[in-house]
Simulated scan of single mutants.
Amino acid sequence: MVTRVDDDNAELLRRAGDGDQQAWNTIVDRHNGLLWSVARSFRLGHAEAADAVQNTWLRLVEHLDRVTEPDRLASWLGTTVRRECLQLLRRTARQHTSAFPELLVEIADPGPPLDAGLLLAERDAALWRAFETLPARCRQLLRVLMASPPPAYAEVAAALDMPIGSIGPTRQRCLAQLRATVSAAPALADHVPTTEDRS
Rank of each mutant, 00 (worst) to 15 (best):
A152N: 08
P113F: 00
L141D: 01
L34R: 00
V81E: 00
A157R: 09
P150D: 06
T56N: 03
V144Q: 03
P169G: 02
A154D: 13
S166I: 07
A47G: 08
F100G: 09
E84L: 04
E196V: 11
G19S: 11
V5Q: 12
M162I: 13
A49T: 04
L60G: 03
G45E: 12
L142F: 06
A16E: 02
Q87P: 00
L134Y: 01
V156I: 10
T194C: 05
T195A: 15
N9M: 11
R198T: 11
I164W: 06
L178E: 00
D190C: 06
E196P: 07
H46W: 06
A130W: 01
A74G: 05
T97C: 11
F42M: 03
G17V: 04
S75Y: 07
A152L: 14
A23E: 10
R14K: 13
L89G: 04
Q22V: 12
E84I: 05
A108N: 11
R94S: 12
S199Y: 11
V182I: 10
D190T: 08
L89S: 08
S98F: 14
L64N: 08
E102S: 14
V5H: 12
C85W: 00
T195G: 10
G111E: 13
A126L: 08
E62F: 07
D7G: 04
N32K: 08
A187Y: 01
L103Y: 14
P149N: 09
L73N: 01
L12C: 07
V28F: 12
L119C: 12
T133N: 14
T92I: 09
S37R: 01
P112M: 12
I27R: 02
L188N: 03
A50L: 08
L175I: 05
P70L: 09
H31R: 03
G165S: 05
Q22L: 14
L88R: 11
T195S: 12
D115A: 13
Q54I: 05
A93C: 08
